[in-house]
Each structure stands twice: as C-alpha cells, then as structure tokens.
Simulated assay, not measured.
Amino acid sequence: MNLGRIGTAMITPFKKDGTINYPELERIINHLINNGTDCIVACGTTSENPTMSTEEKIEVVRFTVEKVAGRVPVIAGTGDNETAYSIDMTHKAEENGADGIMLVAPYYNKPNQRGIYAHFETIAKETKLPVMLYNVPGRTGINVAFETSVALSKISNIAWIKEASGNLDQMGDIIENVAQEDDFLVYSGDDGLTLPLLAIGGAGVISVASHVVGNDMQLMMRAFEQGEHKLAAKIHRALLPLVRALFAQPNPSPVKYAMTKLGFDTLDVRLPMMEMTNEEKAAFDAIWDTYQTKMEAIRENQPV
C-alpha cells in the first residue's frame, strides 16, 4: 500500500464541554485531503490519544474511515504499552475498515530491545493489516535501536516506521540495512527533518505541520524529487521557523491554534494540555506572518 509522501497525524477537535466535535472532524478530514495529505493517521500522539477513552478511539477511527471514503489510506494508532490492549485495539481498527495500524513503542514500561521486538512481533502476527512502527523516545523513554527495526522489517506485514528519534544516523542505518528498501519505508516523525531524510533515502513524513502547510511541503518534496535542490532547500529553510513554532509549546496546542487561523474550531484541548497564552499566540502570529511572506515570494518567483 502506498502512503505517499505526507501522512498527517490528525488532531481531534473538541467542544467546550470536552466531547469530540465530529462535524468539525469531518471538515478537518476534507481539508487535509484537499491540502497535501496523502494519508491520515487517526489516534496518534497529535490526536491527544492518551486523553481519549477506548470507546472514543474506536469511534474516531470508524468515523474517519467512513468520511475519508477511500480517498486516501487511513492508519489507526492502536499502540499502547500493554501488548494485549494493543491487540484488542488493532482488531477493532481492522473491523472498522482501517487500511493499516501504527504501533508506538511501549512507553513507561521501558522494556529492553528483546521486549520491544516481542511486543511489535506479537501484535503484527494478530492482524492482516500492514503495520507502521513508531519510535519516539522523547515520549516513550525508550529508543527502538536500528538493529531492532531492521529485524522487525523482516516480518511480512511490518511495512513502515515513523522515526521520531531525531537521529538521522539511526534512520540512515535502518535504510541501509533493510533487506529490500521498497519493502520497508522510513518516514520522519519530525517535520524539520523531512528534507534531510529524503536526501538519505527516506520516504516522507508523518506530519503535524501539514495541517496548515501541506501543499507547501508537497512543493518542497516535488522540487527535491525533480532535482530542484536549491528550491527545495529554500522552502525547507522557510518552513523551519514555523515548524519550531508549532512545537514551542506542547503538541497539539500550537497546531490547534494554527488551524483556527484557517477558520477551524479547534482551539480546545483536554487536560493536561493547555491552550496557549495570548503572549504565546502573538509570538506564533509573528512567525506565521513572516512565513506567509516568504512562501508567497517563493511561489511567485520559482514555481514548480
């Protein structure tokens, strides 16, 4: 299955009372598909997955599959630090029509590499769906070593990894050592490393920034693929301050605020996340405005 260049780790919109705003979620789904998203990841980190009940997670995946209606693949985040629970959620995602699943490394428990391997292997063997591994040591407290990722790539339905270690050397080692490069693809879990990862053979990015700049990111990636490396680098440099701003406060508060600038009702977050302060919003606004100016000039002067 082809996930394309950009998968968006989709936010979950909430109403003031804390319940999920499904009409707004449908608007977000359509916006993403129309603005550079090649696949949607539902119930990942950016969805505020840890604050959602089991029933909510199941329903968000079902709803997303229904509203996407086959236009792009839907990957369901079913990973947990309890292997048995991950299996249960994977079965639910399969029943509700997800095209694949994403499994975060088992957080908090801090297993060794044998335990990490066994966790992923056990879940993968319980489903026919293709599997995306998700390595994000800044959140889980453990790093999936490249040797473990390479070993897991030999399992037939483990097809991708979202690498959010920030370690390009590790990503390069994975790409270099998988048996068939096309059979196991490496996606960046950090927006700011999208272009550097492409340069060493990566497939793309599982993105947060694509909520608001998906088309610009596609422009950058097309430029790179067409050999317009100076243009790709220029867009990359324009994107970097905005990417940093989107993570200057805990994710997803900044991207939820950014989406309000496009007319979406997405400001509300669930505790322990907090809405950005007025000062933080003003700082973001300044970077947003500068970005718009830079990208307007790039689009006008160097179309792809």
Rank of each mutant, 00 (worst) to 15 (best):
G7F: 13
I11A: 10
F14E: 01
G18W: 15
N21K: 15
I28M: 14
I28C: 12
I29K: 05
H31D: 04
H31L: 06
T37K: 12
I40R: 07
S47A: 15
P50K: 14
E56Q: 08
V60M: 09
K67W: 10
V68N: 04
G70R: 04
R71E: 09
E82Y: 13
H91E: 11
K92Y: 13
A98R: 09
D99C: 12
Y108C: 08
Y108K: 08
P111C: 10
N112P: 07
Q113W: 04
Q113I: 03
A118R: 13
H119N: 14
F120I: 03
E121R: 15
I123Y: 08
K125P: 05
T127C: 11
Y134S: 02
N135G: 07
G138E: 00
T140D: 10
I142M: 11
E147C: 06
E147V: 05
S149C: 11
L152M: 00
K154E: 07
N157R: 05
K162P: 00
M171E: 11
D173Q: 14
I175S: 03
G189V: 01
I200N: 05
I206L: 15
V208W: 12
N215K: 14
M221G: 00
F224D: 00
E228Q: 05
K230V: 04
L231K: 00
L231E: 00
H236Q: 12
R237K: 14
V243K: 01
A245F: 09
Q249E: 15
P250G: 03
P252Y: 13
N278P: 06
D285L: 07
T290V: 03
T290K: 14
M295L: 08
I298S: 01
R299D: 01
R299F: 13
